[in-house]
Nucleic acid binder design. Structure first.
Lengths: 169, 169
DNA sequence: CGGTAAATTGATCTCCATCAAAGATAGTGG
DNA sequence: CCACTATCTTTGATGGAGATCAATTTACCG
């Protein structure tokens, strides 16, 4: 995502995720996408989708549900970026990754981070060093085990309690 | 917006704005709305809107455009919350307010802030004291003139240059 | 006019950014 | 196969922006 020079990672997509939901409605994309791994992409022509969703109400419903979820997700990110500290952000990030892994039939505790620390930092509004430090701290607390891009969640509940330790901003 | 205790101002709406765009697609609202002034609200039944937009393609197009804009707007906020300092955030906020005022036929320089400093802070990911200090600083630089909730923009270009002084995160 | 909520301003502290350097990893070519 | 290089990662030291704590001051409303 870029807008007057600045740029930021707006999200990480996994198999089955839709992307490019900005530009629905005819506008131009304000984000671009970079593959972090060998990927297959299925392009959905917007007008065909709109045409079909006019004919099939349940498709329309699903389409709108997806758009809505994107908005809710973004609001969650705004909350995270606006009021969480470094390790809370990271905990939320890891738990989210874990959930999505599990939803796709992979292990919820064994994660392979496809992105660099800088990417994670950009996404979470942190610097890469801060991400690295937070990971090390979590490892020291036996919450996770990190070896480069390989990450294993040891104490899921511990992570959850970090992620939701309220700050009541 | 609240989710496990925390809460945050997700946006400020003005006359004509749609709100409640979470919950499109049948879900539950994750935000609620508070009137900061005497307000009239026109409720749009979702299923009627979807029904109509199935029949009127241009309505569907507009509807999708609005949803898309919301997503783009949120991404802008994520950028702001993730990588801007206090006065940049405030400058962006004021310029945005000014634009929307102008679009409605009001003066772009004479603003009446309907919300508290705490609300602004919550929206921008800052504390109320920080908002207050940033405003005072801008006033000292003759960029704006604040008297309580009344705000006058004196140097629009100055504000713009603050808003876009890149930080290249 | 008195009481309450909001706003300003000051002092201090904390967390994260920044600067800097060393260690690990993967890819390249001899 | 191994040295070689570029990139990524970790870790340390320092500084700064904003949070937090606290005390006035100002505006608002019955």
């Amino acid at each position: 995502l870029h807008e007057d020079g600045r740029e930021q990672v707006a999200g990480f997509h996994m198999a089955g995720d839709l992307l490019g939901l900005d530009a629905i409605g005819g506008g131009h994309h304000v984000c671009d996408a970079v593959a972090l791994d060998d990927s297959e992409v299925c392009e959905i022509p917007l007008d065909a989708l709109e045409q079909l969703s006019r004919e099939i109400p349940s498709l329309q419903l699903h389409f709108h549900r997806i758009l809505s979820r994107e908005i809710v997700r973004d609001h969650g990110m705004m909350l995270l970026l606006g009021s969480m500290r470094a390790d809370e952000r990271l905990a939320v990030f890891l738990l989210n990754l874990s959930q999505r892994h599990a939803a796709r039939g992979y292990s919820p505790v064994e994660l392979l981070l496809r992105m660099t620390r800088a990417d994670i930092g950009s996404y979470l509004g942190l610097k890469l060093e801060t991400v690295s430090r937070a990971l090390s701290r979590m490892q020291a607390l036996d919450l996770i085990e990190v070896r480069n891009r390989h990450l294993r969640i040891i104490d899921m509940d511990g992570l959850k309690s970090i992620a939701s330790r309220c700050a009541a901003t």
